[in-house]
Amino acid sequence: MVVTVIGIIRAHNLFAVVMLGGIYSFLMATVLVVLDAVDVAMTEAAVGAGMSTVLLLAVLHLTRTREAPLRHAPVIPLLICLLTGGALVYGTLDLPPFGQPDNPQNLHVAPYYLENSIEETKSPNVVTAVLASYRGFDTLGEVAVIFSAGIGVLILLSRRRRREMVVEDEGRSRK
């Protein structure tokens, strides 16, 4: 994944960037399977590698596929990134050890879900039970976000179609 990201930073052909993005998403899905998050891995492979790649390719079809070279040396962005990275590495030193069952994040509500979800929701898949039942309002909010994003995309793209029609009409009336 690290190599793919370096490739994305260096590539100037946007087509290659999008393809590397797809590879990156599949690698991410594989890592998620290793980390026991099978549902998330499936979603990442379908949505991250599938849908976003298709959307990006559609946009490349509508625009252009070469990136202009950088105009000035990226000193300030590099500095910001190094500072952020340094702060985050400093932060990892205090995080609990990897993969231990008695870490604080594994002692909160997760044991309750694991013990009771099969009685309360009859679903053997705990992720589904939590998503649809215990945290159904989160999912409702997610649906609201997708709905508003869809409306936004429709508004942005339909205005253009209307204007094209107006231009066509003007062309016709001139003839």
């Binding site: 991250g48 959307l55 997760a110 998503l131 989160d138 999912t139 869809g150």
Partner: peptide
């Protein structure tokens, strides 16, 4: 079993992320 809670949160985050990118591309 691994902790199911982050999986649920991230499922939501993935879908929201794609919605963001779709809007950005538009």
């Amino acid at each position: 079993y691994s902790n199911p809670l982050p999986h649920v949160l991230i499922l939501t985050a993935i879908v929201v992320g794609v919605a963001t990118i779709a809007l950005g591309l538009a």
